[in-house]
Design a protein around this nucleic acid. Structure first.
Lengths: 162, 162
DNA sequence: GCAAAACCGACCGCTTCGGTAGGATTTCGT
DNA sequence: ACGAAATCCTACCGAAGCGGTCGGTTTTGC
């Protein structure tokens, strides 16, 4: 598995928040019931999302969580990274602050790491897929069941979009 | 991390075999020394590659391993899959024998899994990167250090190819 | 027969995963 | 003022995988 259920649960959580159009906060409890996920576990996940400033919280009775930004501006690379940590295909891979990709094997020496080509391509593939998908898209995609034949076919087509 | 060092070590092993042009088998010991990896651990990895029919072995003195096919015909999706197991972004994802992608959440019901769009895109990104890279490419890319400026620039360019 | 090699299975310390538990704190409604 | 509802925080726990080691068996060339 590329990702653990942390990403899965966390993305579902974000989608659930994205469904709520108004500014009223959504309680974790209602999310847990809607998605049938353990509340206590969601608490851990939402904490990461909050630290990454993807959601905001209001405490106390009738409190809950809201998206920190409009769903159109939230891309999945930020969400998954908040939940799973740095996204890299391999242990030796890390991004410099400037965005360059480095492999710890190819230090000072001249000979490049033999596997770098492969992992760079994988990295590109994943980040393009994640950064190219917005929360708004997922909310729209999983909209309530008003599916005419045309809608179903449109959905089948959009999967391959990027 | 998307992948563990099993993929890293295994790919390096394959590259090492790919470097040997002749049909003489390469002993694991020489691979371990060349790549500075623990021999006993490589034994486990090469066993998976053998079961996947990516390498062949000859036992006894002066034995070792060879590629089962020419390096041009070995794509990295087969190698990584042999080492890491089924490649799927999420637990609930599995491919049917016909190649269709299924999510175990969306059984009989009508409402599609809300995260399917995302994971399908990720899956596509990864498999395209892996299947689009051959062992021959990696062997070529990490060729001995005859690097003129032109070669270095050519290598920098090919990373973004796909 | 000896040495070199592939094979095989058991074991081990460590970290992560998925989840639970118990409590502390904040806030709204009455 | 009080209690319910909610976020917040920390600790813990069993299971599984990771990265590796070890000891031994079998095959084969010289």
């Amino acid at each position: 598995m590329l990702f653990s259920t942390k990403a899965e649960y966390g993305v579902r959580l974000m989608i659930e928040l994205g469904r709520q159009p108004g500014s009223t906060p959504v309680s974790l409890n209602s999310v847990a019931e809607a998605e049938r996920l353990p509340l206590s576990y969601l608490e851990h996940l939402v904490a990461k999302l909050r630290k990454a400033e993807l959601v905001t919280s209001t405490r106390g009775a009738h409190g809950g969580y809201r998206l920190a930004k409009p769903a159109e501006e939230i891309t999945m690379d930020a969400v998954v990274q908040a939940l799973e940590g740095q996204i890299a295909p391999m242990e030796c891979f890390h991004e410099t602050p400037e965005g360059r990709v480095l492999c710890s094997h190819e230090g000072d020496g001249d000979r490049a790491c033999s596997t770098k080509l492969l992992w760079t391509r994988v990295q590109n593939g994943v980040t393009k897929a994640l950064a190219g998908t917005t929360l708004a898209e997922l909310v729209e995609f999983s909209a309530p069941q008003g599916h005419s034949d045309a809608q179903v076919r449109a959905k089948a087509a959009v999967v391959h979009t990027l």
